[in-house]
Design a protein around this nucleic acid. Structure first.
Lengths: 351, 351
DNA sequence: ACACTCCTCTGAATCGGTTCAGAGCCGTAT
DNA sequence: ATACGGCTCTGAACCGATTCAGAGGAGTGT
C-alpha cells in the first residue's frame, strides 16, 4: 500500500506552491482558471482524496460541528419524544447554519467520570438534561468552548433556554382543581440519580431542577385552591411502565383514591392511562389525567391528552442560535400553553 | 489575550519531554506516579486545557465519530418517525462502541452539488435514504472512508442493510385481498425527485428503489389474487397532507371507489385515516387502511393500524456494527412482520 | 515613462499533538 | 562479575493542511 497522496504532492506535480493548491480547493475564485485546471488535473492523476478534514481542522480551528450533550445515552435521547423534539429544533438550527450536529451521550465506554466532553470534536455544545453533576459545564469551559444550557441551571455558558416550569405546573394543577378535583395524585419524573420509585414528600425544591420546580408548582396551586396538603399525593417514577404501575397501585389501592392525576410528562401520562384502563378505570370518567410536554402523540391518544405544551423544538433552535451567535446570548424563558383535551373532566359526583 | 497553552509548554514547565507529557494524558499507566504528578501539577499551574481534539485527530487518524448521512435535512430525519428509529438504532450502536454519532443532512449552505460529505469529520458513514444520485457513495469512497448503506442499492460500501420490500408489500396486499377486497388503492411514497403527486402507472420497478419495489409487490400480490390490473389504483404522494388528500380525492370522488387502501408508510396511512374521517368515511367499516413501517404511533392510532413492522432500529444498529467491524460486512436482509390490527376488515357486503 | 493599484502566486511558518526507535537505568539470572 | 531483559523517558520526526506577508507582473491614469 502506497502512501496517501497529500496536497503537497499535488502541488509539486502541478508545479505550483502548496498555498495555491490549497486555494484551489478552498477559495477557487482566487486562482486563475488555468492554474486551477492544472491543479485539478494533477489531483486527478495522483488520485488525491481532497483536503483531509482533520488537518484543516487543526489549522483553521473550526470543526463545523456542534454537539448536543445529554446525560442519557444518545439512543434514549432519540427515543424519548420530548428529547427528539429538542433534537429536531437543534437540527433545524444546524441546517440553517450549515454546520453539522453531533449527539454525544453518556456511553458505557466512557468511564464513570469519563465523558466524551473532554475529547469530543465540536465548536460548541448544547447541554440538555443536566443537573450540574460531574461539573460538565466546568469541563467544557476549561476547554474554552462555548455552550448553552437547555432546561438547566444558569452556568458559565453563553446562556440558557427554558420555560417557567413552576408556573406551567401551576396552570395544570389549577385546571384540575378548577374542575373540582381535590384529591390529586402526581407522577413525577426522576428526582435524583439512582433514587427508587416511591411516594414523595416536600420540600420539593431540593431535587433535580425541573422535577423540583414542577412539583413545587403542583403543590402551590393545589394549596392555593384551598386543599389540604395531605390531598396532594406525589409519587416518584422512573418514567417506565413498572414504576408508573407502582405509583398507580399506591394511589388506587387505598380507600380514598385521587380523582385526578398530574403526570409530569406526556409519556408518563400515556403509560398511566393504559395502566388505568387495565385496572378497569375509565379516563376521564373515573380519573382525570393531565400530562406535561405536549408531544404529538398526546393529541392522538385515547382519550386525547390534556397537557402543557412546551416549545421543545424552539428550545433546541434557540439554543443553537445562541451558540452560533445568530441570537444574542441570554437566559431565555419560552412560553408554555395549557391545552385542555378530553382526558380531564370534572370528578364524578360522589353518590 | 495570551497564547493558548500547549502540551509542549506543560512538558517544558514540568521538565519532562513532550512525549512523556503526552503519555500522562493518554496512557497514564506508562508513566511513574511522580512524573505524572509533576506533569499534572504543571498543567494545572499553566491552565492547560487538555489535549486538543483536532491535533490528536490529525496524528492518530481516528475521529471517534461516525456520520449518519441523509438525503433530507437533519431536522426531517428526526421528525420522521421511521427515520428516527433508524437513528435510534445507530445511536445505540454508537453508545455501545463509545463513538460519537453525527448526523449530516442536506443543508441549504451546501450548494446544489455541495454536501458536507467531502468535509464532514467522521471515521465512516451510514447512508440512509439515498437513491444513488450525486454519486455520494463515490465521493465517500474517494475519501477512503468506509460506509454502509441502509435501504439503498449495493454500492462500493462495506455492505447494505435492508428488508425484502417487495415481499413485505406482497404480504400486506395479500392480507387485503384475503379479506375479500378487490379494488384497492395505494398511496405511494415519493417515487422520484421533484415529481408531482398524481396517479401512477407501471412498470413500477423504474422508480426510486424502495417505492418501486413496494409498488411492484403490491401489484404482484393484487394480480396473484386474481384481480384485474385496473382494480389496483396507485397514487403518488409527497407524504404530506395535501397530496394524501389529493390521492383520496382521486380514489373516492369516483363512482367505483376502492374498499381498501395500502399506504406505503404509516405516516401516510395515519394522514389518510384522518382525511377519510373528514370525508365521513369510517375505517375499517367503509374502507380498510394498511400502513407500512410499524411506527409506535400506529398501535395507538384510532383505529390501531394494520401494518408491516420493519426492524428500523435493527437496521440502524446493524449498519453501525458493520461499519465498526463488530459484524461481518454483508448485504443483510432483515425480516419484516405483518401485524394485523383493527384498521383492516372484510369489505362491507355490497347491497 | 513613471508611479501606483490590484491581483495572483510563492514559501515558509504554524497548528498541537502522537508515535516510535532507542538511550539509560535497575534488578536478576548465570 | 557479566549479560540481559524490562521499564521509563527522551527527542525528533511527522500528521496534512491553512494562512499570511510579501514578491512579481499586468494594467491604469497622468
Amino acid at each position: 500500500m502506497t502512501k496517501r497522496v497529500r496536497l503537497k504532492d499535488v502541488a509539486a506535480a502541478a508545479g505550483v506552491s502548496q498555498g495555491t493548491a490549497s486555494n484551489v480547493f478552498n477559495k477557487p475564485d482566487l486562482v486563475t482558471p488555468q492554474m486551477r485546471a492544472a491543479v485539478e488535473a494533477a489531483a486527478e492523476r495522483l488520485g488525491y482524496r481532497g483536503p483531509q478534514a482533520a488537518a484543516r481542522l487543526l489549522r483553521s480551528g473550526k470543526a463545523g460541528l456542534v454537539a448536543l450533550l445529554t446525560d442519557e445515552s444518545a439512543a434514549e435521547l432519540v427515543q424519548n419524544s420530548y428529547g427528539r423534539r429538542i433534537l429536531a429544533g437543534a437540527a433545524q438550527g444546524c441546517d440553517a447554519a450549515g454546520v453539522g450536529l453531533s449527539i454525544v451521550g453518556r456511553t458505557a465506554a466512557d468511564g464513570a467520570a469519563g465523558w466524551s466532553v473532554d475529547t469530543a470534536i465540536a465548536d460548541g455544545f448544547v447541554l440538555y438534561c443536566f443537573e450540574g453533576e460531574d461539573d460538565i459545564a466546568g469541563r467544557i469551559a476549561r476547554r474554552g468552548l462555548p455552550f448553552v444550557t437547555i432546561d438547566g441551571p444558569r452556568g458559565a455558558g453563553l446562556g440558557t433556554v427554558g420555560v417557567d416550569d413552576e408556573g406551567a405546573a401551576e396552570s395544570v394543577m389549577a385546571h384540575l382543581t378548577g374542575l373540582g378535583h381535590r384529591r390529586i395524585g402526581a407522577l413525577s419524573l426522576e428526582v435524583s440519580r439512582n433514587a427508587d420509585p416511591g411516594p414523595l414528600t416536600g420540600p420539593f425544591g431540593a431535587r433535580y431542577r425541573t422535577p423540583g420546580l414542577r412539583l413545587a408548582g403542583y403543590a402551590r396551586a393545589h394549596a392555593a385552591a384551598g386543599n389540604a396538603p395531605a390531598d396532594f399525593l406525589p409519587f416518584h417514577t422512573l418514567s417506565d411502565e413498572r414504576s408508573v404501575a407502582m405509583g398507580l397501585a399506591w394511589l388506587f389501592d387505598r380507600p380514598d383514591p385521587p380523582t385526578a392525576i398530574a403526570a409530569m410528562s406526556d409519556a408518563i401520562a400515556m403509560m398511566a392511562m393504559a395502566e388505568l384502563r387495565a385496572r378497569g378505570l375509565s379516563v376521564p370518567d373515573d380519573v382525570s389525567v393531565a400530562g406535561f410536554d405536549g408531544v404529538t402523540e398526546g393529541a392522538y391518544a385515547d382519550p386525547p391528552l390534556t397537557t402543557v405544551i412546551q416549545p421543545a423544538e424552539d428550545k433546541g433552535l434557540a439554543a443553537l442560535e445562541m451558540l452560533l451567535g445568530t441570537r444574542p446570548p441570554a437566559d431565555l424563558i419560552l412560553p408554555t400553553e395549557l391545552i385542555v383535551r378530553a382526558s380531564t373532566a370534572a370528578p364524578r359526583r360522589m353518590s
